[in-house]
Amino acid sequence: MTGRLALPILAAAVALAAAPSAQAPTSAVDSYATAVRTYVATGDTVKALTPIQAWAKPEFERAIDALIARRDQALIEAAAVLQVEIAVGVVMLSPRSAGTHLELGEKLIRSLRALPGPGPEAEFSEKWYAVAASAFLMVNDSRLASSFISRGLQLAPGSLDLRLMNGIVDDLEALSLNPDDSKTGVQRQRIATARTQAFLRARDRYARLVKDAPSFARARVRLGRVLWMIGQAEEARIELLRAQADARDPVQQYLSAMFLGALYEQEGDAALARAWYEEALSLAPASQAATVALGHLDVMVDRPDRARALARGLLSQKPVLDEWWTYNGGLETASLEWLRRRVRR
C-alpha cells in the first residue's frame, strides 16, 4: 500500500503541535538528523518520526536550518523526501500543516542548488514537486497544487511530469464539480459550465503533451478519458485504443482498458464493455474497480449470479492498491516511490 494509507497512524501527532516541545535546541537538531537516517535505513516513516511527533514548526525550522548547514547532499535530499512523506501523511487531517512541512522541504530542495558540484538532478526536483503538488490534489486544493507545480517548473523547466500535473489539476477540479449537487437550476448551470471549462483546459494540456511526446502514455490515457467525459467519444476511443496498443506500462494498459469498458458500456455495447473490463481484470487480477465494473455490468444484464461470484472472489483476497485510486486520487505514487528509492539507494 502507499504511504498515504500507512502514514495516518502517526498523522495526528505530526500535524504540527501548537507549541514547541521542551526539547533543547541541540538535541532537537540531532533528533531530526536521526529521524532522517532512520527513515533512510528502514524506509519506515512512522518509526523515524515517532521520537519527534510532538514537534512544533519552530523546532522543525531550527533542525532543518542546522541540517542544511551541514552541506551533506545525501542527507538533505533524504530530509526533503521525509518532509514530503509527512505532508502526504497529514494532508487529509491538516492541509495547513502539510503546506508548512512542504515549505520546509522546499527550503531543503533549494539549498541543494547552493552546494558545490553538480547538485541534484533535475529529475529529483521534478519528482519532489510533483509529489508535493499531488498532496494537495488529495484534498482538492488546486490553488496550492498549482503553486507547487509552478515552482517545480522553475527548477525543472519543460518537465513532462509537471506539465502533466497541470492537466491533472484541471481534470480533478472538473471531477469535483458536480452539477447534481446544486439545488437550483442557475447553480446547476453555473457548475456545469465550470466543469466543462476545467475539462477543456485539461484536454488542451494533455493534447499538447501528447503532441510534444507521443509516447507519453499517461498523458494519452488521460486525454482519452477527458475526451470521453466531455462527450467526444470517437476521439476518446482513438486515443484509448492507441494507448492500449502502444503503452508498455501495464498500469496504463489497465486504465485504458477500464476506460474503454466504460465507453462501450455507456454506448450500450455490453459485449465489448465486458471484453474490456475482463482485459482490465486480467491485467490487474485483484483490482477492486475492475471487479466492481464487471459485476455491475452483470447486474445490469440480469446476471446477478456472476456479480456475486466476482465479489466473493475479490473479497476472499487480500486488498491491493488499485491504480484507479491513484489515477483518481491525485497522489503521484510513482514519483513518491522514485524518491524513496533514490534516498534509500
Binding site: R4, P8, I9, T291, G295, A311, L315, G329
Partner: peptide, 22 residues
C-alpha cells in the same frame, strides 16, 4: 478497525450487496 485512506462508499456498498445471503 483503523482509519486510513479515501472513501470508496459506492464500490464498497455494491460489493456488500453482492454478499447478501442466499
Amino acid at each position: 478497525m483503523k482509519a486510513a485512506g479515501a472513501t470508496s462508499l459506492y464500490d464498497g456498498l455494491f460489493l456488500a450487496l453482492q454478499m447478501r445471503p442466499e
